[in-house]
């Protein structure tokens, strides 16, 4: 506990050691406590979906797929359900890179129609500046999970982190593997990679690089995820759902046996048409018809297998940056 004085009305205020904001009960002005040593801004997303609601979301997503058991809302039994807060660093980096090196220019000879037949490349000294700002989301949990790494996170509705809140919903809090400096360094590195890529487009050879990184903002955010296991016809299936927005990170899709039979029959049928086509073409009976059937049948069979055998579903994925 710390005692401070309200800067507006001078009333005494008490705050927890971990608390950074306090609202004065007398004049309702909110104050922020800043240590002179940099303070980590630490947030969490509150858990908005309880176990029952998350089950409804999961079943709803599964049922949109063909060949799933219709009574799943009743029959799905969740055998394991863990709630865990996963840390992400959100870092905004500004980087100014001054570079110099050897660039290229070209001379052209032998005019031909609208262009030239011949091109010659020559080196020339070149220098320039890249100066821009980007935001990076850094997955900071110890356990490597590609699904969570690529998940398009949402930061809407974040509140200051309170360990008590996590305890209340009986959730584990994964500690961050990076401290503030490491997270910043990680983001600066990613930014340097981007600038390096740009430089290689401009230059044939980089000779000198001077850059000035500046972190414009950084905070740590813990997002609650549900890790579920459920059983279907004796097979264990897993799913991960976002406990703050109810979105499905990834789930396996349980299917009925009749679905597998349908997919099997369908792809067999297309495959048979394709193979028959090859046979007809090779034997020179209905040669042209055979060629058509071989192309279309095999593509249809491959596509049916590709789509029909899909066993996982993701609601959103983060798009990769160029």
């Amino acid at each position: 506990m710390k005692s401070i004085m309200c800067p507006n009305c001078a009333a005494p205020l008490e705050m927890e050691d971990t608390q950074t904001h306090v609202t004065c009960p007398y004049c309702s002005v909110t104050s922020e406590l800043k240590k002179v040593k940099e303070l980590i801004e630490h947030y969490m997303l509150p858990v908005m979906y309880d176990a029952e609601q998350i089950r409804t979301e999961l079943v709803g997503d599964i049922l949109k797929h063909p060949g799933t058991p219709e009574d799943l809302h009743k029959s799905l039994k969740i055998s394991k359900l863990d709630l865990k807060f996963i840390p992400y660093f959100i870092v905004t980096v500004h980087l100014r890179t001054e570079y110099s090196g050897v660039g290229e220019y070209a001379t052209y000879s032998f005019r031909y129609k609208s262009g030239y037949r011949n091109i010659d490349f020559h080196p020339k000294p070149e220098q320039g500046v890249f100066d821009d700002e980007r935001e990076f989301i850094i997955y900071a949990a110890e356990e490597i999970n590609n699904e969570l790494l690529n998940f398009e996170i949402s930061t809407r509705g974040k509140v200051y982190f309170q360990a008590l809140e996590a305890e209340k919903v009986r959730a584990d809090v994964s500690p961050s593997v990076f401290d503030l400096e490491q997270a910043k360094a990680e983001a600066i590195n990613s930014m340097r990679e981007i600038h390096k890529g740009l430089m290689l487009k401009e230059l044939a050879q980089i000779q000198e690089v001077r850059d000035q990184p500046e972190v414009k903002g950084v905070y740590l955010l813990h997002i609650p995820f549900y890790f579920l296991e459920f059983e279907f016809s004796g097979k264990k299936q897993t799913a991960i759902l976002d406990g703050a927005t109810g979105r499905t990170v990834i789930t396996q899709i349980p299917r009925e046996t009749s679905y597998w039979i349908q997919v099997g029959v369908l792809s067999f049928l297309f495959g048979a048409i394709g193979l028959a086509g090859i046979y007809l073409a090779v034997q020179q009976i209905f040669f042209y018809f055979g060629i058509f059937a071989a192309i279309a049948g095999l593509v249809f069979a491959a596509r049916t297998l590709q789509l029909g055998l899909k066993t996982r579903y993701r609601e959103t994925r983060r798009r990769r940056r160029r």
């Binding site: 042209y288 018809f289 055979g290 060629i291 058509f292 059937a293 192309i295 279309a296 593509v299 249809f300």
Partner: peptide, 13 residues
């Protein structure tokens, strides 16, 4: 047949 096969494959996709 080659063009028809490719067209059918694209539509089937």
């Amino acid at each position: 047949p080659i063009i028809a096969g490719i067209v059918a494959a694209v539509i089937g996709f």
